[in-house]
Amino acid sequence: MVDVFEVAKIIVERIKTHYPQDVAIVGYYGSYLQGRATERSDLDFFFIPATVRGREVELQFIIEGISFDFWPIPWDRAERIAAFEEWNTTIIADCELLYVRSPDDLARFMGLRETIAALGNSSNTLKLVQQAETALGNCLISLAKLRLPASPGDLSYCRVQAHEIVTSLFESFCFLNQVYYTRGWGHYREQVRQLPIKPAQLEQHVDTIMFSRSRDDILFACEQLIADTLSLISERRASVEGARSYRDRMKGYYEEERGLMNKLLTACEKGHYETAFFVAIGVQDGLARMLYSAEKGSWPSSLDSGEYRTYYEQFGYPDLIALLNPIDFEPLRLAVLSLIEKLEKHLKSEGVPLNQFDSVAQFKSFVLSCS
């Protein structure tokens, strides 16, 4: 059995001799740290380069049939890992250090662990829910590939896409529960079983994905898991949304958006349907999202299926999109004028300041008063 720590010692001695100022941290994690190593286990080790030259110590090699990958994690990536922007947080949280260049490097590294320790706090819940949404969004790409008419019908292709879906779902679960996994391939399920937030039929559907030889059954299991996870994310998001605030979230919005509304009026007057089409949809959808944000205290989910439009409809804003007509632009033009009037009144009633001036002289006075 290869003495992996003797291997690590050789690499660290090389760093001390030839790269003493170029490598900040060397650490190891995984099976040897957790006491689960087998005779075929390599040493999972990494380094944080301190300079560009430090990247030169990266090395992949094989000793007695055991592969080793001494790989770099730049400081900025280590910070992303510590912030749960990647889901291999255990590398930073649980590693054992083999080499540290300086006390400052050690303090910086321990600061990353403090960041990880704080990620279970409620103040980070919304951020991690959003990352769970991003992970689930990746599932939709693989699901779409499976559903395409031209999608290969063989089982191998189906399993590849299902594998992508399950992997992204496991990632989503760790974000939803504000935890990180300490073990990798082949051990996610046993860790997910301990999580409070997970689909009720998770085991059944994952078994179908892993063992079934029916493409239709695998596709159905993927669809159900995605739908169930989306529901969990929506519930979690609803429980942590921020405070209602128009002044904070819509200050300056109208002044900027008025330019698009003017463009839409001009398109209506000139009968330019293509401009009207794109601008009308952009204005209506953008305002719907802003109203949701002001009311709910957070931006609509990237997986929102249109629920964010509720407030736009509730407040009686005109449906510009439904009025798009290449033959008759007048109803749309009148609707835009109505929208401008309604939005101004709405924002003023919510205490949102509007910087509108009747003349350049009036604007000049305003600017001078702000000096």
Score class of each variant (00 low, 15 high):
Met210His: 15
Leu176Ala: 08
Gly242Pro: 10
Tyr246Glu: 04
Ser151Tyr: 04
Cys158Ser: 08
Leu112Tyr: 11
Asp3Leu: 00
Glu307Trp: 01
Leu33Pro: 01
Gln21Tyr: 02
Gly282Tyr: 13
Asn88Phe: 04
Thr310Ser: 02
Lys364Leu: 14
Leu339Ser: 08
Thr90Leu: 03
Leu225Met: 11
Gln201Glu: 15
Gly271Lys: 03
Val283Gly: 02
Asp285Trp: 04
Ser302Val: 09
Tyr29Gln: 15
Ile73Gly: 05
Arg237Gly: 05
Gly286Asp: 03
Gln191Glu: 11
Cys370Glu: 13
Pro353Ser: 05
Arg258Tyr: 12
Leu59Phe: 02
Asp42Pro: 05
Leu225Asn: 09
Ser359Cys: 08
His187Leu: 04
Phe70Cys: 00
Leu332Pro: 15
Thr275Tyr: 15
Leu225Gln: 00
Asp285Cys: 05
Thr134Pro: 00
Asp217Ser: 08
Ala83Lys: 05
Trp87Ser: 06
Glu133Thr: 08
Trp87Glu: 10
His163Pro: 00
Gly259Pro: 00
Glu330Ser: 10
Ser359Glu: 15
Arg147Gln: 14
Gln314Val: 07
Ala162Cys: 10
His272Glu: 06
Ser142His: 04
Ser301Val: 01
Val4Asn: 06
Leu128Val: 04
Ser67Cys: 03
Cys268Gln: 04
Tyr317Val: 10
Thr266Tyr: 14
Ala243Ser: 15
Arg40Trp: 11
Phe357His: 14
Arg309Trp: 07
Arg215Glu: 05
Ala93His: 11
Val129Cys: 12
Val26Cys: 02
Gln130Asp: 01
Tyr311Thr: 02
Met1Gly: 15
Glu64Arg: 13
Ser245Glu: 14
Phe211Glu: 10
Gly186Trp: 12
Leu195Phe: 01
Ser245Pro: 06
Ala322Thr: 14
Phe211Arg: 14
Thr134Trp: 13
Arg53Pro: 04
Tyr29His: 11
Asp217Cys: 03
Gly271Ser: 06
Val283His: 14
Ile218Gln: 14
Val192Ala: 10
Phe277Trp: 11
Ile197Pro: 07
Thr266Ile: 06
Leu195Gln: 01
Asn262Trp: 10
Leu232Gln: 08
Val279Trp: 02
Phe329Gly: 06
Phe45Gln: 07
Ala335Gln: 10
Leu98Trp: 05
Gly252Ala: 06
Leu219Gly: 15
Glu79Trp: 00
Met250Trp: 08
Tyr253Gln: 07
Ser41Trp: 03
Pro149Thr: 04
Gly120Leu: 03
Tyr28Ile: 09
Gly27Arg: 09
Leu97Ile: 11
Lys9Asp: 12
Ser239Cys: 07
Pro331Asp: 10
Pro72Met: 06
Arg55His: 14
Ser142Glu: 01
Tyr29Thr: 08
Leu146Lys: 03
Ser214Cys: 12
Ser338Asn: 10
Ile281Lys: 14
Leu33Cys: 05
Lys127Trp: 00
Arg333Lys: 13
Asp105Ser: 15
Leu136Cys: 04
Glu350Trp: 12
Val23Phe: 04
Val206Tyr: 05
Glu79Gln: 13
Ala93Leu: 13
Gln204Val: 15
Ser67Lys: 13
Arg244Tyr: 06
Tyr254Gly: 02
Ala227Cys: 01
Gln356Tyr: 14
Gly27Leu: 06
Ile62Met: 07
Tyr312Lys: 09
Lys364Ile: 12
Leu140Ile: 12
Ser305Asp: 01
Val336Met: 06
Ser239Met: 10
Ala144His: 13
Glu295Ile: 09
Pro199Ala: 15
Leu287Phe: 12
Ile73Ala: 07
Ala93Phe: 11
Ile66Leu: 07
Ser293Met: 09
